[in-house]
Amino acid sequence: MPPNSRTSAGTVDASQHSGVDAAAARSAESLASNVLIPPRLVGALTRYELTAPRRDGSLGGSHRSPRHGSSQDFADYREYRPGDDHRRIDQRVLARLDQVLIRLHDAEESARVRLIVDNSASMGFDDKAFRAAQVAGVVGQVALQTRDLVEVVAAPGAVRHEAIGGGRAGIPALHRRLLATARTSSPDGSVAETVSLLQRGGNKTAITVLFSDLAEPTWELALEGLLGAKQQNVLVHVVAPFELDPTKYPHPELGEILTGDVTLVDIETRSTVEVSATSKVLKQYRDTFVAWCETVAQACARRGIRYVRVRTDDDLEQLALGPLRAAAGYR
């Protein structure tokens, strides 16, 4: 296996079925690239900042907030946006230059944005890990542009790294870290446990975004874990088209519609299920999975967690400027 390939703890024995590794191999092709987000999209995202509230009540970074920061040291101007406190408008500049600018102060407390990226074995299916890293990169870039600190956490395992800050200058480091996270499969464990562990520890996190397929029985506990502190929580639910509708989309490993008597191998738990993949059975599965996705969305809604479903075949730019922006709260 190449050194930069994603290692999957859930990969089944290659002697049993060589095709099981094929998905990981294709995912590795994407991960082998050092470009996480196309430069054009990176450029398009430069004018966005997070708008989420701060857990401790301070104004974090340049977040739009009804409350003032404690520092009086002027740092910079920025354009006024709807929702900004009118009292922070620099009246002098307005009078002299007829421009509405907001005064920024260095002494403002930087908020922490936590990006929990699921890199379990199931995320190796159909490039879900790479897609999760891409979406995390979008959110992280916006956070950096908001002068927040961005913390990338791989789950399961809660591998934590030093938070990345420095505004826009931190974007390359963010991309490298996300790529490294996506390339490395986490050891066996539960995403829910990792989330709960992180949130119980207490921090000043303003926003926690979980990027996961929630393909584990304890997925609901993961949602509960996000509720440990007053913050903005977002769930980016990453799914593959085949998972949504196997009657319409080919299996990424087989390259064709699943049919016949097959043994399904859970690449995370290695458990097997024998299935006669008839049209009727596939439709029953599809209905079950879609209903489960709705259940997840409803569970998030009940808990105040913003929910966005991301498909691996979605256009990343449209995703970043559309559903993801609304869920993550940047503009």
Binding site: F125, D126, E216, E243, H251, T263, V265, D266
Partner: peptide, 11 residues
């Protein structure tokens, strides 16, 4: 039966 990889067999 041929073995086919799945992200999860929950469903």
């Amino acid at each position: 039966r041929p073995r086919v990889a799945m992200p999860s067999t929950l469903w």
